[in-house]
């Protein structure tokens, strides 16, 4: 029974850290005043390119780098279209999603039907680099240790990115400037901040972070390509919801990932848990799995409505979000 709890904790982290990558990446982009609805597609592009690069070179590091760069390139397309060419952000973002997921299938189907076939992950040095690393001392804590402090390297990287990003927004000068742009690009421009450059940099970095999340999804699925199911599987959309739930704060995104991950894991494990604790948690079995899947979206919808109704403005939503900045209109 103790094992069930440990497994549960372990799975919350291991299956949902990709959400954290998607969310922190999207927070960085939204803080610059852009709403990028292309998370799903950006993650898919990073996933497929990063995975292939990792398998070809047998190096996780190269995989992460390629995932970051290709997803960053996607971000560059978004930035070029919306910042320089003033295209509509919603349409551009949604198109990136359509394009990215289609690109994933295109490359995947193409490689699967080619001579070499789809690269496999099993028993390679790459799989070894992706193994779990135990943190000394902390991983020895009973129940919690194995669940929370024994994970692969990309889990730790994702958490580090979230913490660093929080510090970047809260404590540094460029972070402050970025927030100023998100609130009022015209005022930031007058204060001598190079709005265009800042937007480009942060959209590209944010997209790159999403790409690493995509690669993580692929590796976590064992790298098998199926013609009918994308690795990202809607996590990009949950990430967009999580940004709102986390109130545009990377540290809260960490917490939000655990909460949304809790529901995700409950969906998979409700039968096991109900079986192990029949007296207290037996009712869990009666809740349909689809309800847990829909829960992140239901909660976010409620958060959206409640924050807009409440008079006290506690939302950290950047004020200029979704609107392009055209200097001549200032």
């Amino acid at each position: 029974m103790i094992n069930v709890i440990t497994m549960f904790l372990f799975n919350i982290v291991v299956y949902n850290i990709a959400l954290l990558y998607g969310t922190t990446g999207e927070i960085m982009i939204e803080k610059s005043g852009s709403l990028n609805l292309g998370v799903e597609g950006t993650m898919a592009i990073g996933a497929v390119c990063g995975y292939i690069a990792a398998c070809r070179t047998n190096s996780l590091f190269v995989g992460v780098l390629v995932a970051f760069l290709t997803a960053g390139l996607t971000g560059l397309v978004f930035a070029f279209l919306t910042v320089t060419l003033q295209a509509n952000q919603n349409v551009t973002g949604l198109t990136i999603t359509t394009f990215g997921v289609a690109f994933y299938y295109f490359i995947g189907n193409g490689l699967s039907n080619s001579k070499g076939g789809w690269p496999k992950l099993n028993d390679t040095t790459l799989a070894d680099q992706f193994r779990d690393v135990e943190i000394p001392l902390l991983s020895k804590i009973p129940i919690l240790g194995k669940g929370l402090f024994s994970h692969n390297i990309l889990v730790y990287l994702g958490i580090a990115i979230a913490v660093l990003m929080w510090a970047y927004f809260a404590k540094t000068m460029p972070g402050l400037k970025l927030r100023a742009i998100g609130e009022n690009p015209g005022a930031a421009d007058s204060a001598g901040i190079n709005v265009t450059r800042m937007k480009y940099i942060h959209i590209i970095i944010g997209s790159g972070i999403m790409g690493i999340g995509g690669l993580y999804m692929g590796l976590n699925m064992g790298g098998t390509f199926e013609g009918s199911n994308c690795w990202i599987n809607g996590y990009g959309w949950i990430a967009i919801a999580l940004v709102i739930f986390a109130n545009w704060n990377p540290a809260k995104a960490l917490l939000g990932t655990l909460i949304f991950g809790f529901f995700n894991t409950l969906r998979v494990y409700n039968a096991t848990i109900a079986y192990n604790f029949p007296n207290t948690l037996g009712w869990l079995n009666k809740i349909p799995a689809q309800f847990f899947s829909a829960l992140p979206f239901i909660i976010t919808l409620l958060v959206l409505i409640i924050t807009s109704i409440s008079k006290k403005n506690s939302s950290n939503e950047p004020a200029s979000i979704g609107r392009n900045y055209y200097r001549e209109d200032r």
Partner: peptide
């Protein structure tokens, strides 16, 4: 080797 997703790719 090319499924109907190619339409989405082109559309994008």
């Amino acid at each position: 080797a090319i499924d109907s997703n190619f339409a989405d790719l082109l559309q994008g």
